[in-house]
Design a protein around this nucleic acid. Structure first.
Length: 427
RNA sequence: GGAGAGGUGGCCGAGCGGUCGAAGGCGCGUGCUUGGAAAGCACGUGUACGGUUCACGCCGUACCGCAGGUUCGAAUCCUGUCCUCUCCGCCA
């Protein structure tokens, strides 16, 4: 969310930002509503002032004079009420629109309509070549008795999977590697709820917009409140301090959220159906930074969370590239996004394993997440987040890149401590 | 699941229908004092929005968990709701 006052003074910037993001938004309509709203507030406050002044007279006046004042008050009160009522729908409409104003992208975010327009900014590692018949990750998982997709489908439908045996151990190893890596870099691990209230999703700017991608169910204890299954622990972690006023001395806060993630993947029928690239339930370690409203610091943090993700991919010995997401693909909330994509041999392409976003104060405003600055002023924080590691998707490059001619898989050194020291799965 | 208590400013804590944006204390700021500090003393010290002023300011509106209601008038009364705490029960 952007500040209404800021929008008033930067209407052109907001309009241009929306256009660059390919998100239709009528700034003019919002400004008109805002002007009307402000005018009405003035008028109502004047009436209210009159009411308060008369009200004070009541206690000091008796007899006929008192009756006169009371009669006058009645008409003033009616006027106040009328104006108060008129204010409500106006305010509601403005609030609704405010949730939809796109955060203008940073100047250096590459212009473009979609994923195809993203710009590669870095490439790391040698692509593997195979002098034998390459297997894709699903073949490898089956060969190693690490997965059962058929029974999972019967149990839970498409885009489900059951990891077994070494598959479970490998997933846990990868998660734990990510957790240890990020924790050693000063991030505090948080194991957070994935069943969340709607405000947390609105606050992190998933709503309005992602309702169809999010599982919803009735709250077992409160009749009229639906609960939602968060698609990422970013929701809980970023909303962790919602409504609070943090002390600048305690910032930045760096957290590592650990949780399962749930996504409906509605509207993706037929897309990425083979294997475990796109699934309804997965596990993830997520990095989140909350700091003061300082663009220079945010930029530094953004570089840091990208570097953290790179360290993870390097620990897994995976070739990867980094792309700057095109404006049309960034979405409403972030001002800039980097994707980290690991090489996935079976796809003959890099596939997204991490998304690093920065938001300025866009999320913090919605979450009412603030801090008291050194000068005593209260301001909204800046927030950022990125994946540390998400499974099972990361298993795709991991298994495929490190596969051996006999269908076994070499374990990267960094993972061995988490796998009883083994250097090979299968074989 | 049952019974009770409570949510007030940066913090503690009074207020229980008008004179309350809110006593008192702590903390913080400024000054006096001092060689310097501590102590002591004096004064000051919430936020947002709008109006006005060259400016210091001044004026208006709103905020005492949140949302409604009663009333000429609510921190104070009523209803709902969220949260916290205590006791009993149940479960792990």
């Amino acid at each position: 969310m952007l500040d209404m006052a800021w929008i008033r003074e930067h209407a052109d910037e907001v309009a241009r930002g929306a256009a660059r993001k390919r998100i239709p938004f009528d700034v003019g309509a919002l400004l008109e509503l805002d002007a009307e709203h402000r005018k009405l507030i003035r008028v109502r406050e004047d009436a209210k002032a009159e009411q308060n002044a008369l009200g004070k007279q009541v206690s000091s006046v008796t007899g006929e004079a008192r009756e006169t004042v009371l009669a006058k008050l009645k008409t003033v009160k009616e006027r106040v009420q009328k104006r108060t009522e008129a204010l409500k729908p106006l305010k509601a409409k403005i609030d609704e629109l405010l949730l939809e104003v796109p955060n203008p992208p940073d100047e250096d975010a590459p212009d473009g309509d979609s994923e195809e327009d993203s710009v590669e900014v870095k490439r790391h590692g040698e692509l593997p070549t195979f002098d034998f018949e390459m297997r894709d990750h699903l073949e490898l998982l089956h060969g190693l008795d690490m997965i059962d997709v058929e029974r999972a489908g019967r149990l839970a439908g498409s885009r489900s999977y059951i990891l077994m045996g070494d598959g479970v151990l490998l997933e846990q190893a990868v998660i734990r590697l990510g957790l240890d890596l990020i924790r050693r870099r000063g991030y505090v691990p948080l194991s957070v709820p994935v069943i969340v209230k709607e405000w947390a999703l609105r606050g992190t700017a998933y709503f309005p917009g992602a309702e169809e991608q999010t599982y919803k169910f009735a709250n077992p204890t409160v009749d009229d409140e639906d609960m939602w299954l968060a698609g990422t622990s970013e929701v809980s972690v970023t909303a962790f301090h919602a409504g609070e006023i943090l002390d600048h001395a305690d910032l930045p806060l760096k957290y590592a959220g650990l949780s399962p993630c749930f996504r409906r993947e509605a509207g993706t029928y037929g897309k990425d159906t083979r294997g475990i690239y796109r699934v309804h339930q997965f596990n993830k370690v997520e990095q989140v930074i909350i700091d003061v409203a300082d663009d220079a610091k945010s930029l530094a943090h953004h570089a840091e969370i990208v570097a953290n993700a790179e360290a993870l991919l390097q620990a897994l010995e995976l070739p990867y590239r980094i792309t700057a997401t095109a404006t049309g693909d960034i979405g409403r909330a972030a001002t800039f996004k980097y994707d980290l994509e690991a090489w996935m041999p079976s796809r003959e392409a890099y596939g997204e394993t991490h998304t690093a976003s920065r938001f300025r104060d866009f999320q913090a405003r919605r979450l009412n997440l603030r801090y008291r600055a050194a000068d005593g002023k209260v301001r909204h924080c800046h927030t950022l987040n990125n994946t540390v590691v998400a499974t099972p998707r990361v298993l795709i490059p991991l298994l495929e890149v490190h596969q051996q001619p006999d269908g076994s898989v070499r374990v990267p050194e960094a993972l061995r401590p988490y796998l009883d020291g083994r250097d090979l799965l299968g074989g």
